[in-house]
Amino acid sequence: MAPTEHGAERRKQTLRRGLLQVRRGLTPHDVREAATALADRALELPELAGARTVAAYVSVGSEPGTAALLDVLRARGVHVLLPVLLPDNDLDWGTYTGPGCLVSVRHAGKMALLEPAGERLGPEAVAEADAVLLPGLAVDGRGMRLGRGGGSYDRVLARLERAGADPALVVLLYDAEVVEEVPGEPHDRPVHAVVTPSAVHRFGGGV
């Protein structure tokens, strides 16, 4: 890794720590209220309104909530894909068939995640998605996303690029997590839109 990349990663870690500290200070009421507003605003997105398949994720802890959004998408007849974390931090995918399909899985050194039971569709299944909801901690004015640092979604984005797939890339965040700058590295890819409880932000002309 080049010295400038080391510097970017250090700045990312500092930014992550601050953002995670703020999230840890949110009350359950704060998280519920934000989740309701996020679902309402996200469901207005044309990228989701016209989607047949959406790759999403199940929020945990104080992450911006996704449960209501998943259920409405499924009720609309959308095929909702959810990630399954593999031992190497890559992601397989399964189908969301309702809250009852979710099982709590504790991976080594990580918090417990809710993952779909049932058939595994393979890492390449994400290439069929019309829209991909990405978890994140922040996005800046260029659309550059700050993740948690595990690299799982960097692999997803690289896989989409190799497949020639061009889904809408959307991140769900709290309002204060749209920031001035996310330190960039060569492998980073911009997203198309961010949804917060109070606004939709689009980048690069949108999709």
Results as ranks from 00 to 15, higher is better:
Ala112Phe: 05
Met111Lys: 13
Glu128Gln: 13
Leu121Gly: 07
Ala131Glu: 03
Gly141Val: 01
Leu133Met: 01
Gly118Thr: 10
Gly143Trp: 02
Gly118Met: 10
Gly109Phe: 08
Val132Asp: 07
Ala138Asn: 09
Ala117Gln: 14
Leu114Cys: 06
Glu115Met: 12
Gly143Val: 03
Arg120Asp: 05
Val132Pro: 03
Gly143His: 07
Asp140Gln: 03
Arg142Leu: 04
Gly122Ala: 12
Met111Phe: 11
Pro123Arg: 11
Gly141Asp: 01
Glu128Cys: 12
Lys110Asn: 07
Val126Gln: 06
Glu124Ile: 14
Leu113Phe: 15
Lys110Thr: 09
Leu113Ile: 11
Ala129Tyr: 11
Arg120Ala: 11
Ala138Trp: 01
Ala125Asp: 12
Glu119Leu: 14
Pro116Trp: 08
Ala112Tyr: 07
Leu113Gln: 15
Ala131Lys: 03
Ala117Lys: 12
Glu115Ala: 12
Gly143Lys: 05
Pro123Thr: 13
Val139Ile: 02
Leu137Ala: 01
Val132Thr: 03
Ala117Pro: 05
Leu113Cys: 13
Val132Cys: 05
Ala127Arg: 12
Pro123Val: 06
Gly122Lys: 03
Leu133Glu: 05
Ala138Glu: 00
Leu133Gly: 03
Glu119Lys: 14
Gly118Phe: 13
Gly143Tyr: 02
Ala117Arg: 14
Ala138Gly: 09
Leu133Phe: 03
Gly143Gln: 04
Glu128Tyr: 05
Leu134Ser: 02
Leu133Asp: 02
Val126Asn: 09
Gly122Gln: 08
Glu119Ala: 15
Ala117Gly: 15
Ala131Phe: 05
Leu134Ala: 01
Leu133Lys: 04
Glu119Val: 15
Gly118His: 11
